[in-house]
């Protein structure tokens, strides 16, 4: 043992103390409460997505000629292919849900406030990357809804003033959905976006480590008790428990509600009912409420507002230090989002 340890120590000159220093960040006590672990959940699911995504890519062929058949092969012929595909799909759903919940927790606890404004903005970038990954992934199956979803998405981009038309061409690799479109979506989904997410996560966690986790004091905790506990192994165990619960949840969801396949994409027939994935219901409903450019511009404005919210909130608090403005704004936003999503989910058109 000693020989091996020495061999390694000589070649990787990191001392145990340094390692402990690096990993054993003191974790604030409030993280003993499970809902504060929502930040780790999307990260764990992201790993699941990477693993299952790589596995799916073993059989997936990103060309309009073969895409549908290859997904069909994965779903119906490859051993456990249906399971891995279903886990990937449910993983995406849970990951987006977890990201949104994490963001809501950060928002309502005011954890984005000075000096953490930039990390909020990095988080916003992560949110956008996650949503776009979901959108492109959905398009890869090349079933009817994938195709028409992508077409509609591209045409929404088109309504953006000035740059929209170029964005659309860039997105589709041509004027309309063509045989070079699917490889584009695949590269975005399987390379560009995951790498972006990894890099952004790196920044996100680095900033978190540099600034430390926002600390909260809860009323039921003793004032004089220890304020921190160890990341290793205590918090790691918590994360392991969350990970396993997620794996079990994913397996059960995949078995009970496995991903199926709709009819193959047919560029000549638009399906009667066309809907995006649930996480785009809000946008979809919004676009139906307002027409064309107005809808897109207002969406852009809302996104921008969310982006710079820490500064807006800062300004407001400078003028009215006691105001609960951001909480009310948050409640309003949540009601609006839930309302629009439910509305879209309940109606056919």
């Amino acid at each position: 043992m000693g020989v091996v340890a020495n061999f390694i120590r000589e070649r990787i000159p990191v001392s145990g103390d340094q390692l402990r220093e690096l990993t054993n960040e003191p974790v604030p006590n409030h993280l003993r409460r499970w809902w504060f672990c929502l930040g780790g959940t999307p990260a764990y699911l992201f790993v699941v997505q990477i693993v299952t995504g790589i596995l799916l890519a073993f059989y997936y062929e990103p060309s309009p000629k073969a895409a549908y058949e290859s997904v069909h092969y994965i779903t119906d012929e490859a051993a456990f292919g249906w399971y891995l595909r279903s886990v990937h799909k449910w993983g995406a759903t849970l990951m987006i849900a977890a990201v949104i919940l994490h963001q809501m927790r950060v928002f309502f606890t005011g954890a984005y406030r000075k000096p953490r404004e930039l990390n909020w903005m990095v988080g916003m970038c992560l949110l956008i990357c996650t949503l776009v990954t979901g959108f492109t992934g959905y398009s890869l199956v090349y079933e009817q809804l994938s195709y028409w979803g992508a077409t509609v998405g591209a045409n929404i981009t088109d309504t953006v003033p000035v740059i929209g038309v170029y964005l659309k061409k860039l997105m589709l690799g041509g004027e309309v959905y063509n045989e070079r479109t699917l490889p584009r979506f695949f590269m975005l989904h399987a390379a560009v976006l995951p790498v972006s997410i990894v890099l952004l996560l790196g920044v996100h966690i680095t900033l978190l480590r540099l600034q430390g986790v926002t600390e909260f004091q809860f009323e039921d905790e003793p004032e004089d008790g220890p304020k921190h506990f160890n990341f290793f192994p205590d918090h790691l165990y918590s994360e392991l428990i969350i990970g396993l619960v997620l794996m079990i949840l994913l397996s059960v969801l995949a078995t009970v509600l496995p991903s199926t396949m709709g009819p193959k994409a047919d560029p000549l027939t638009t399906p009667e009912v066309i809907k995006p994935e649930w996480f785009f219901y809000v946008t979809f409903r919004w676009l139906k409420l307002f027409s064309g450019t107005a809808a897109v511009l207002s969406m852009g404005f809302i996104a921008f507002t969310m982006f710079v919210w820490p500064f807006i909130d800062g300004l407001v608090r400078r003028w009215w230090p006691k105001s609960e403005f951001s909480v009310f704004a948050g409640i309003f936003a949540v009601i609006a989002i839930v309302g629009l999503t439910t509305w879209e989910a309940l109606v056919k058109h």
């Binding site: 205590d234 396993l244 397996s251 059960v252 078995t255 496995p258």
Partner: peptide, 24 residues
């Protein structure tokens, strides 16, 4: 307790995979 829970959940995960195998 945490460790026990992890152990139990790991086995439960295996059980869910048995369910997956049965489906397969």
């Amino acid at each position: 307790t945490k460790k026990s829970i992890i152990g139990a959940l790991g086995l439960l995960f295996l059980c869910s995979l048995v369910l997956v195998q049965w489906m397969e």
